[in-house]
Simulated scan of single mutants.
Amino acid sequence: MNIRIGYGWDSHAFKPGVPLKIGGLAIDHPEGLAGHSDGDVLLHAITDALLGAVSAGDIGSFFPPGDPRWKNADSSIFLNLALEEIQNAGYRIVNIDTTLVLAAPKIGPLAADLRERVADLLDVEPSNVGIKAKSPEGLNLDHVAQAHAVVLLEKVENPEELRSMSDVIESQKQLEDVVKDLVSQVHGVEPRRVLKPVFDTEDIT
């Protein structure tokens, strides 16, 4: 099959005293999203959509919420893992469409910046990223943020066209080694040589 579709969904409650991060973008707001990691509901949904498209499980399969290594972790780490998975399966992203459901903050004024940031993380053109928002009117969910994501992938016939998608997050080379070790474990291949991390795995931020 040359085309695959993936769907992802996630939700997090708002919590005072934590920073708000959506789509890899820091947003000025009185409350952030509660979660074991940084609570980035949009990146979590996109990650699950990518993993689901290539039948690679879900975000919890790779990053259990009880694992202290992922406490306060940047959700771009999870997204990077999903990009590695679709590359290993021989696919690339055609386009992605997302919908945020939340009462505040208003996403309209932020949509262009969110689109640029998500496109950068996925290494696609902004025109291939859809960012929409809806109010949870009548759902009694004013203190919750939800995200839906749908992704379309296409098979890459020439393997040379696939470059390592881990290059997208250039500032997290040590974390990429963690991601690739996880991939090797899942696929039952010999794991990479373990490097001593230069960061505290108990507090990845």
Rank of each mutant, 00 (worst) to 15 (best):
N2Y: 05
I3N: 10
I3L: 13
I3G: 02
R4K: 12
R4N: 07
I5V: 15
I5H: 12
G6M: 05
Y7F: 11
Y7T: 08
G8Y: 00
G8A: 01
W9A: 12
D10M: 10
D10S: 11
S11H: 13
H12P: 00
H12I: 02
A13R: 14
A13Y: 08
A13S: 12
F14H: 09
K15Q: 14
K15R: 14
P16Y: 07
P16L: 09
V18W: 02
P19C: 14
P19Q: 13
P19L: 08
P19G: 09
P19D: 08
L20K: 07
K21V: 15
K21P: 01
I22L: 15
I22H: 07
I22C: 11
G23Y: 04
G23T: 05
G23C: 11
G24C: 10
L25S: 09
L25F: 10
L25T: 13
A26H: 14
A26M: 12
I27N: 11
I27V: 14
D28V: 13
H29A: 12
H29C: 10
P30T: 10
P30A: 07
G32T: 08
G32I: 05
G32W: 06
G32D: 07
L33W: 03
L33K: 05
L33N: 02
A34I: 11
A34C: 09
G35D: 04
H36I: 11
H36E: 15
H36W: 15
H36Q: 14
S37K: 06
D38P: 02
D38T: 00
D38S: 11
D38A: 00
D38R: 06
G39C: 06
D40A: 11
D40S: 12
D40F: 03
D40K: 05
V41Q: 03
L43P: 05
L43W: 02
H44G: 10
A45E: 04
A45I: 05
A45C: 10
I46T: 00
I46A: 02
I46D: 02
T47C: 10
T47K: 00
D48L: 01
D48M: 06
D48G: 06
A49V: 04
A49L: 03
L50R: 09
